[in-house]
């Protein structure tokens, strides 16, 4: 299979002004519920840096309402125990203004979470459909406007995922038949470490007892999964998983492909970092990295007329032979 790589997308950069405002409006009610909380604890809870917490708390401490005099008098401002913050890294609000509670979700925020829940409906954690539907209705009621009409088709609980989850709960390895993309069938025994997905494709990342290495398995290529009594060799805490689903290797083959620009996003995952793309006769010429041609021929044959292998010749031949063999089945 071609090396599939998570492309660097536009990364969530530093907080923008809207994020910072949301953070301030969210931090205040949290602090109101905690008489005293350390900067460290608040940072861990919100998943931000300690500096972000300190900066926000200092701003809250000098903010408030114009008040009757329109002069931001002392009582019109929040106040914090400044010494506690500066000396002990502890946050204590000593005066409150204007804010009583957490803010509602925006219509789009609620829609994003609802669509996210729908997308995840195949997870065993979602098996209790009444919990999920009550959660969705709470989100809708907790939004300022009715959630935007963005929806993802729900799916049945995936039995393979359910079994994977059970194996981790029991602390045992799972085994299954797996067709690698060369078409070879093997019985694999795996310690499940993490389940990942990219759109409609789901993957299991695990420690493979056969290969004695971390491997990524497509869930839809797994068949006959079963629990084993073999204790897990490694758990999720023991292994640092690489960021990318599939690691490149020195043996990778480079293939030059012409692709119609409208179809280029379909190849984006296979394009090597730093490879140049040039436009030739209205098509984009780019190079992709594959571990062998067995996956490449499937990919190219599923993009008829929009993607053509240019070189090496061997790759062209493999694709041509694959398509010709497919066509030959219709003869006679």
């Amino acid at each position: 299979m071609p090396k599939k790589k998570l492309m660097p997308q536009k990364k969530a950069g530093p907080f923008q002004a809207q994020d910072k405002l949301t953070f301030l409006l969210s931090l205040v009610p949290y602090l109101m519920d905690h008489d005293r909380v350390s900067v460290t604890e608040a940072a861990a809870h919100f998943g931000v840096t300690k500096d972000q917490i300190r900066e926000a708390v200092r701003l809250i401490g000098v903010s408030g309402v114009p008040g009757e005099t329109a002069q931001y008098q002392h009582g019109d401002l929040f106040d914090i125990a400044w010494d506690d913050l500066e000396e002990n890294d502890q946050i204590v609000l000593t005066n409150l203004v204007a804010i009583d509670d957490s803010p509602r979700f925006s219509a789009r925020e609620a829609a994003a979470l609802i669509a996210g829940l729908q997308y995840l409906s195949g997870l065993p954690e979602h098996a209790d459909r009444s919990t999920i539907s009550s959660l969705m209705s709470k989100l809708a009621r907790g939004a300022t406007g009715s959630p935007s009409e963005v929806a993802v088709e729900a799916s049945e609980t995936d039995m393979t995922l359910a079994l994977i989850r059970d194996s981790v709960e029991r602390g045992t390895a799972i085994e299954f038949d797996y067709l690698n993309s060369r078409g070879e069938l093997e019985r694999r025994t795996v310690d499940a470490l993490r389940v990942e997905s990219v759109d409609a494709d789901w993957y299991l990342r695990g420690w493979c007892h056969l290969r004695e290495a971390v491997r990524t398995f497509r869930i839809d290529r797994i068949s006959e999964p079963a629990l084993t009594d073999e204790a897990m060799t490694f758990g999720a805490d023991d292994v640092v998983l690489p960021d990318t689903l599939f690691e490149g290797s020195a043996d990778d083959l480079m293939v030059t492909i012409d692709v119609a620009s409208a179809a280029a996003p379909l190849l984006a995952d296979y394009v090597r970092d730093g490879s140049t793309t040039t436009e030739i006769n209205g098509r984009l010429r780019t190079s992709v990295r594959v571990s062998h041609y067995h996956g490449l021929k499937r990919l190219i044959a599923s993009m008829p007329g929009v993607a053509t292998v240019i070189e090496p010749t061997e790759a062209r031949d493999v694709v041509a032979a694959w398509a010709a063999a497919g066509a030959a089945r219709y003869d006679g």
Binding site: Q9, G116, Y119, L120, L123, E125, V152, I164, R165, V168, E169, A192, L193, R194, V195, E196, S197, V198, D199, A236
Partner: peptide
Amino acid sequence: PVLGYAPSLR
């Protein structure tokens, strides 16, 4: 969570 998930919709 029992099992770690990293889902993504692009």
